[in-house]
Amino acid sequence: MRETPVVTAVTRISAPVEAVWRVVVALDQYAQWHPVLALDAKAEEVAIGAEVPGRVSGGDATAQEVTMRITEVEPPRRLVWEGGSLDAILGRHSFVLTQQPDGTTELTDSEEFFGANAAELVPALDQLKETYGRYGAALRARVAALSG
């Protein structure tokens, strides 16, 4: 049995969990803050089973079309979506928001990879963790800009 590759990055955000949640579920606004992801769905469309089309761009001129399916929604604490295929790589991405005693929010941004080619990601997990840390920093900056 092979171990499932997982990437996890934790980011502290100086805002209450509800403020962070509003940014996480404003899917149609990801292009304004997320370094590589643009999504085409509004917050009111965030529901289990919803299909969310979008684009992933590695920073170059080309963008890859993607569709995520929302699998879990627990406002204002947890959002999970899946994208890809078990024939290649299926990613299960989760945002978990935890209110801290000091009023900040801890964001745990994690993705598990499944499928025929998932094991190929193992050598890149450290680099992916750094990348996900940048996503958390971008989310923190977006929340701060909307709060300030």
Rank of each mutant, 00 (worst) to 15 (best):
P75I: 14
T62C: 00
W33T: 13
E112C: 14
L39G: 03
T98K: 14
A145Y: 10
V52R: 02
Q99R: 00
P5T: 12
N117I: 04
M68F: 10
A145C: 08
K42M: 07
Q64S: 09
S147G: 13
V73R: 01
K129M: 12
R22L: 12
L125V: 09
A138E: 11
M1T: 15
R142W: 09
V6E: 10
E44A: 06
D60L: 08
N117K: 12
L90G: 12
S14A: 13
V66N: 01
F95E: 06
S14M: 10
W21N: 06
A118G: 09
A116D: 15
A88I: 10
D28K: 09
E3G: 11
Q32Y: 07
V23F: 03
V7A: 06
L97Y: 05
S85I: 10
P53A: 04
Q64L: 06
V96G: 04
G49M: 08
H93W: 15
M68C: 11
T8I: 13
G59V: 07
D28R: 07
S94T: 13
A15W: 11
A137H: 09
L86V: 02
P53H: 03
E130V: 15
R140Q: 15
Q100F: 00
E120M: 11
A141Y: 01
G54Q: 06
A15Q: 15
P35N: 02
L37W: 05
V73F: 02
P76Y: 01
E120P: 05
E18M: 00
E65Q: 11
V56R: 03
L90Q: 14
V56I: 13
V52W: 02
A144R: 13
Q64A: 05
D28T: 08
P75E: 09
E44R: 01
E106I: 02
L37K: 04
E82I: 14
S57C: 14
P101Q: 08
V24I: 11
P123K: 05
Q64K: 06
A47P: 01
T105F: 05
M1I: 15
R12G: 02
T67E: 01
V17G: 12
D40R: 12
P75K: 04
S57D: 12
P16V: 05
D60Y: 04
E112T: 15
V25Q: 01
G148E: 12
T105I: 03
T4N: 09
I13V: 10
V36R: 01
N117H: 13
A118Q: 09
G84N: 05
P101N: 07
G148R: 13
G58Y: 06
K42A: 14
E120G: 14
S94E: 15
L125K: 09
S57I: 10
P101A: 11
E3D: 11
A43P: 05
E130Y: 12
H34F: 04
Q100H: 00
D126I: 02
A116R: 14
L121V: 05
V73Q: 00
P123M: 07
V143Q: 10
F113T: 09
V7C: 07
Q32K: 11
L146P: 01
A138Q: 11
V7T: 12
V52Q: 03
R55Q: 07
G54K: 06
A141L: 08
G115H: 04
A61M: 09
E82Q: 15
A145E: 14
A61P: 01
H93N: 13
V46K: 04
R134P: 00
A145G: 11
E65I: 04
L37A: 10
